[in-house]
Each structure stands twice: as structure tokens, then as C-alpha cells.
Design a protein around this nucleic acid. Structure first.
Lengths: 380, 380
DNA sequence: CATGTTTGTTAGTAAACCTTACGAACATAA
DNA sequence: TTATGTTCGTAAGGTTTACTAACAAACATG
């Protein structure tokens, strides 16, 4: 009995999935064309066929569909025609024909929102004072901000992406967000019903990780650590956000760091990562006269201590920090990477980088835009 | 402009993938039928249609194909016929018609192999003395063991699964395995060429994690910690093994634990997890007169300290230990879970369990069998 | 001006799944 | 016993999808 012998690639384990109909296969190929167009700028149908390995016929058919939905547009014939043959008709995503609304609910003082184009460029900004808002009032403010932004859009809005603090499940239901007093709030479903637009709600750190991957030039395996009033993280593994068994992946703020005590934390424990790293704590210690460099170095070391097992277990090669530049950049980040190097195997993590995000305070809003792009244009 | 508003599920980010042809969609549905048959025992074509949401016609066609390849068999009509209508013809995987060879190269003293049926039951065992084997000799011994096991198989062998120590890439190439002196050894490709059978090589801890999921009743999110001569781990996220950016995911043996020093490690650092937990170290300390309970408690605590950030970041709910029962069970495991509880958020990890594997010393061999099952029967 | 190249489309084919319909084989009730 | 209804498996035919083959259009080049 002979068996054909191929090479076996990445494995998944036995896990019944859903059936695949031809229709869904087509949707997949359609997304493939959209993604190729998104990534590689203006292309002809023939270019797309070469890139996707589909035939020109199939590409032509898919493109006709996309043009019909005004997702793609023809730009006219290619001008640099130094080649023989019929000049190509260039196509591109209808980049200027759509807008995305991205909203960041993570700040304690304001809800920030922006009108964003398909390339992630922020066109308009709006803010709403969110101090003290809890429960339904906070949700209403988020809705108002979304309404305001969709109202000023001069093009059709592809969708509304929202990065929320707290624990958010896959349906965009905020399971818990203590600062806003939210419990089991179906924010995504509610806003979607109100706005009549696709809405996607996810944890703000997860959104930020997506932004760093989509717009920040990060690799597909990435941990994004947000340092602010608290400390949270978003994990991207092979380009896919990690959610965790109870949707609490990345919640490392209350993991105890080290074996030598530490300050008391609001959660009742001692030496939580937040007690070492949260912005108010750092500012307070510096204001109280502790040497700034020493405080920042220690904070970086503690972050490194906390991240070392994670970096080791996941074999991460990229850690990105988000938060106040004046605190994170320099000493703190350097201490983090030094500590990580000292505590992990050089052999596996020699290329480890720890750096600040280049997206600044817009990271969550732009990550929310990536979520919309993925949902509307992405792979199934 | 109205947009249809659906609910959006789990998101992936923009990442150009491959095209999907109808042929591949069919392969997917074929695997779906196989998996359903594997999981849910004997079923009729109509049962399969209901379970998979495919039509009876399509299921009939796929089943005919599977029967033609002798992967499925008809068992005759159902006997408990208390229902009206034509009695169903029961189908099942041809469970007794195939064998799998599973091999564990992780031990320092022996290479263990087994002939395994599709349900994971071990039918025959073989061992080869592996003390001191390095380089080509070690690879030759692995090949000889695989040959011996395929030779005694009385049924066609679906494939050979191998759990190897060290760093193994997706193509089954052992990048580094210090104990065997292997560097960039294309073990999978070489054995496959020699044996003329599908061969899958992966890291032994990853294989063990798959075994715990496939045969040990574990959930799809799982960390399996192997404690032996060294300390390694395998991670399963949503049923998929995690490999890491350089295929070194799970290599936590040389992550430094705690902030209070520790014994010197062979790697040059101090206080690596292995110095606290490796079996030789524990045995030596107990033999030297240290109180057994105290040694084991401390080892468990250190494991908990190392795992806390990982459990927190990944929001894991299940940690499984594999290794010498007399050392791991009881005090050590209890200290681990106690420490984890003390160092993470009760709210997110209240259901965290830490337990010993029930698969004993066969875990890697049976995990290797799961890899073969996945590759031959699994989803694309 | 003839030739070759490239593009995009038309026409026809193969694969895959669907819907509809039917015979076979059974339980149940008149 | 017979009629009715149910369930199973299969046959026939239709729809969708992407493929191959072929072709006209439009250009560069010798």
C-alpha cells in the first residue's frame, strides 16, 4: 500500500469547523483581491491575477463586482507605458470614497474620536468630556460621539470601530469596565442598532496592537503594552488578536512582579505591575523627590521582569510601548530591554526589540479603524 | 446610503492569504465529515448531514470517496431501530484499519515508540537505547525505531509522528537540539524519504500539549509544562499549537524567576526556572537532606511565579504538568496553583486549574499520534 | 508596415454543492 | 392486511465558481 508523501505544514488539531460553500470560497477570493489592492496600491487586473494566482478572467469578474459596489475604481490607463502590448487599466481601492470612524474610550478624561480614511490618515477629530461619566451616561456619550463623527463624514462610512477599556468579548459586549461602571453592556449591538452602521467594539489595547501592525510597521507577532492610569496589553499572534479563555488576555496590570514585596495595590495585593509602572505612581514618586532616572529605571526593570516569562513562552520578538513619551522613552524602555535580555535566552531572543509606538495618542483610534477594515474588507 | 448591518465575529487583520479553489473547499468539507465521524462514533449519512449542515447528497458523495479510500467503512444497518422509516446504514472511521506510529525522542536514555490505533490506544511498544547518541547516530536510531514499528504494523500506517527535543520549525527541521548535537537537521524530510510514509516532527512539549487536548480531556487553551532533565512547555491556543517567531515558544526553562538570586545555571545565568524545578536538582537537594516538602513547595512556588505573567497575559484557564508523579503531584502542584492565585486576578482566573496529566509517560507518543491524525484527517 | 506582446473579455468546460424528486424499508393505525 | 407517514439513501438537473481556450484591442519595435 503506497501513500503519496507530501510535506506537512503548520498543524491544527482536530476541531470540527463549519462547512465551506463555493459562495464562501468566492468571498475569500474577493477579499484577497481587495487586500492585494489595499496593500499594493494601483494595479491592473492582470497585475492582480499575477499577484493572487487567480486567472485574469476571475479577477475581471471579481473586480466588476467590487466596482459595482463602489469599493474599487478605475483610474484610467497606465501612463508609464514603456512596455509593449495594450496599456493596462489601473485599479485601486476607492480610497477617497469611504470613511471610517475610530473611537477611543480608554482615557479617563475624554472620549476621543476621529474620521479616518482607508489609509489610516486622520481627517477630523472630535472629543467629548468624559470625566465622571458612568453607566448609561458613558454609553450615551460614546453614542453621541459616534453620531457626531458619522454626521460630518462627506463619504459613506464603512463602519465604526471602538476601543473600550475593560474586558470585551467577541460580540463586542463589555463584560466589565470598572472605571465606567459597565457590566455586560452590549455596546456593539446597541450602537449598531442606533447608528445603522457596522460597529466593532474591542478592548483598547487589542485595538492598539492592531494599529501597530496595520499602520506602525510592526510584525505579526507583537505585544503592545499600554501604560497609563493602569497597565494593560494587547497580544497579536500571527496577525490575530489573542482573546483568552475569558476574554481577559493582556490584563497584566495586576500580576505581581518580583519576590521582594512592593507597594500596596488597590486590588489588595502587593507589588502588582501597576504599582511599579502606572503613570500616577511614577509621577507621584518623582514629585516626591525620588531621582527621576532611578524611578524610571526601576519601572523598566519591573516591566522586564514581568514580560520575561511571556516573551520566553511566546517567543515574541517585538514589544511596543504606548503611553507618555516623556516617561517611557529612553531610560525606561532601555531598562526593559536590558532586563529582558538578562532574563531570557539570548539564542532565542537576540533580535528582541522594545520600542515606543510611533502612532502616539492616536493609536487606539487608528486601531479601531483597522478593525473596521478587517471586518469589511478582510479575510473570512 | 444604507449598509446591511450584520454582527461581526472574531476578527483577523488584513493579511493576504492564498486563493481558495472549489477543490480545496471540498477537501475542507471532506475533513469535516471525517472529524465528525472521528468524534461522534458510528453515524449514518443522514446523521452526518444533520451534524455538518451539508446535504445528504453531498455527504453521500463524500462518504463514497472515503469508503473508496478505505478511510471509512459501513457497519450495517442500525439495530436499535425504534424509529419509523428506513433503517440507517451506520458508518464509522475505519478505526481498526489503520495504525499510527508515535515516537518520543525526548528522554535522555531511550527513544520510545509505539504502534497506536486511531483512538490513541497503544498497541505495541518498542524502545531503543539512546544513551550518548548524538548527531547522525541519534538520527539513525530514530529511523531504526520508526522502521521497526512500521514493520510490525498489521495494518496500513497513516503516518509517523515524532516528538523531538529542541527547537523544531514548521517543516519538521530540528534547528537546535543540544542534547543530541543536532543543528538544522531536516529530520522530517529525511525520515519521510526513507520510510515512504507521511512523517511529522514537532517539539515534544508541543506534541504533549496536543495529546492532552486530544486524549486527555483538556480544553483548547492550555499550557503543558514538562518537567524532567530540563523544563519546557507547549502552548495550545484555541486548539492550535503556538510556535513563536523563531519556533522557540514554550522554552521557559531558562527564564529567570524572582528577584532574589538563585543557583547558577549551566546557561550562565542565575535563578533560571530549571535551577528551581529540574528533576536532577530536586532529587539532589532532597538527597542532600533538605526537607522534601519544603523543596517541593519552593519548586511549586517558583513555577507559579514564572507562570503568573503568562497565565495573566494569555488568560489561560488550564495548566497541565507532565513529569515524575512522585515529585509533581501533591505539594508541588498545590504550591503552583496557590502561588498563581496569589499573583493574578481572581476575577479572571478563578477557574484556573493546575493538574497532572493523566497520560503519564506516553504523553509525547500519543501527542505524536494526534499530529498524524490532524495532518491526515484534519482541516486544511 | 508586419510582428510580437500585453490586456481584458467572450465562450465553453469541469467541479462542487444545491434543490427536487423518488424508491426502499420501516412503524403505526385503521 | 392495508393504508399512511417517516426516514434513508440516491438520481437527476440546476446554479455557482473558476478554469482553459480563443480573440480583439492597443501598443512597441524592427
Amino acid at each position: 500500500m503506497t501513500t503519496e508523501v507530501d510535506s506537512f505544514g503548520p498543524r491544527r488539531v482536530l476541531r470540527p469547523s463549519a462547512k465551506v460553500l463555493p459562495e464562501q470560497a468566492r468571498a475569500h477570493n474577493r477579499s484577497l483581491v481587495l487586500q492585494t489592492l489595499y496593500r499594493s496600491g494601483p494595479l491592473s487586473r492582470a497585475d492582480l491575477a499575477r499577484e493572487t494566482a487567480l486567472t485574469r478572467v476571475t479577477v475581471g469578474d471579481l473586480v466588476a463586482e467590487l466596482i459595482g459596489e463602489e469599493l474599487a475604481i478605475e483610474l484610467g490607463t497606465r501612463v508609464d507605458a514603456s512596455r509593449p502590448g495594450k496599456p493596462a487599466t489601473l485599479l485601486d481601492l476607492n480610497r477617497d470614497g469611504h470613511r471610517i470612524v475610530g473611537i477611543d474610550l480608554g482615557d479617563t478624561e475624554v472620549f476621543r474620536g476621529a474620521l479616518i480614511d482607508l489609509d489610516g490618515t486622520i481627517l477630523e477629530r472630535r472629543e467629548i468630556d468624559a470625566r465622571g461619566l458612568v453607566g448609561g451616561d458613558a454609553a450615551a456619550a460614546a453614542l453621541a460621539l459616534a453620531r457626531e463623527l458619522t454626521a460630518i463624514a462627506d463619504r459613506p462610512v464603512l463602519g465604526v470601530g471602538i476601543g473600550s477599556p475593560g474586558i470585551v468579548d467577541l460580540a463586542g459586549c463589555v463584560l466589565t469596565a470598572p472605571n465606567r461602571g459597565w457590566t455586560d453592556l452590549p455596546l456593539q449591538a446597541r450602537l449598531q442598532a442606533e447608528l445603522g452602521l457596522p460597529v466593532i467594539v474591542a478592548n483598547d489595547a487589542n485595538a492598539a496592537a492592531l494599529a501597530e501592525y496595520g499602520f506602525g510597521g510592526a510584525s505579526a507577532d507583537l505585544m503592545l503594552v499600554m501604560v497609563g492610569y493602569g497597565v494593560g496589553a494587547g497580544l497579536l499572534l500571527d496577525g490575530t488578536p489573542l482573546f483568552g479563555s475569558r476574554f481577559a488576555a493582556g490584563e497584566i496590570g495586576h500580576v505581581v512582579v518580583g519576590t521582594d514585596g512592593g507597594e500596596a495595590c488597590a486590588c489588595g495585593k502587593q507589588g502588582c505591575l501597576e504599582t511599579w509602572l502606572a503613570v500616577p505612581r511614577l509621577q507621584a514618586r518623582i514629585a516626591a523627590g525620588e531621582p527621576r532616572e532611578a524611578v524610571l529605571r526601576q519601572a523598566g526593570e519591573r516591566l522586564g521582569i514581568a514580560l520575561a516569562p511571556i516573551v520566553g513562552a511566546l517567543n515574541l520578538s517585538e514589544v511596543v510601548l504606548s503611553g507618555p513619551v516623556e516617561l517611557l522613552d529612553g531610560t525606561l524602555a532601555e531598562a526593559t530591554v536590558d532586563t529582558l535580555r538578562q532574563r531570557t535566552m539570548e539564542q532565542f531572543h537576540g533580535d528582541l526589540t522594545v520600542r515606543l509606538t510611533s502612532l502616539g495618542g492616536d493609536i487606539v483610534m487608528r486601531g479601531a479603524a483597522v478593525m473596521v477594515l478587517s471586518a469589511r474588507l478582510g479575510v473570512s
